[in-house]
Write a protein that binds this DNA or RNA. Sequence first.
DNA 1: TGTCTTCTTTGTAATGATTACAAATTTATA
DNA 2: TATAAATTTGTAATCATTACAAAGAAGACA
Lengths: 134, 134
Amino acid sequence: MQNITDELINKGIKPSFIRVSVLNYLRNTIAHPTIETIYNSLKTLIPTLSKTSVYNTVELLADFGLINVVTIDKNESRYDGDIKFHGHFKCEKCNNLYDFSLLDVNYSDLKNFIINTKDVYFSGICANCVKGGV
Amino acid sequence: MQNITDELINKGIKPSFIRVSVLNYLRNTIAHPTIETIYNSLKTLIPTLSKTSVYNTVELLADFGLINVVTIDKNESRYDGDIKFHGHFKCEKCNNLYDFSLLDVNYSDLKNFIINTKDVYFSGICANCVKGGV
DNA sequence: TGTCTTCTTTGTAATGATTACAAATTTATA
DNA sequence: TATAAATTTGTAATCATTACAAAGAAGACA
């Protein structure tokens, strides 16, 4: 938890309880939760929490590069506490999101372009659903 | 135009005027237009056109793999008549969308996964905006 | 041609995630 | 403690997308 607080301070963000809690939550899940899920998960820890605060907080964290926004889902953003470069796979059957390693994205063109974000989104059927699903 | 009609027929889609017009429009632009833009652009050609029909049509075309949906923009989908594999770059300054060549996406993991779509989205500042913008 | 059926198109209303915004609360500062 | 600044909250607005039923067009067949 202290490292989470330090991460915020190092970015010049005041480590309020909500901010620490949201970042800590995202750092410790691989579920790529939605706003709704983050909100519900932290509601017991922070009974006065509002959904607007969750929106505000993830926007702040994303702006400072502490988390990533995953927009693989057209109608609902998901949030990823793992900021190492990797790809996202969305299963069309169970709707789960999986991380996968990306060795390289080999592109040409884009000379003189400044690249700030690289997102790789795959979709299809996950191994679990392929072999019969749950 | 005949090739557009044939493309639809080959997929088993009845080539209505709207469908041919939308597909033809998307095949002949690199602008990655939104629903709004498609609607406005075809309004003169098809005065009775409704926005719902544009939604219906692009969904149909996408379902049959004749166009691609580009969801790089969180709040508005864009449509791409070029179905060859390539990446999309969104300029954070001018909001333009650029295609770029993708030689390879080198991934590990995903064994036994069925991959149906691969989307690569970059964002940053385009060359034009870097050197002073418009 | 007229009728019936089916497919396509349209317009309106609902949905739902996100944003705007001002009030309330908490925290920092003097 | 008083004042200012930042944070959090709740409600209302926004807006792309979807749902859905009615209207219209095309095709089959006698």
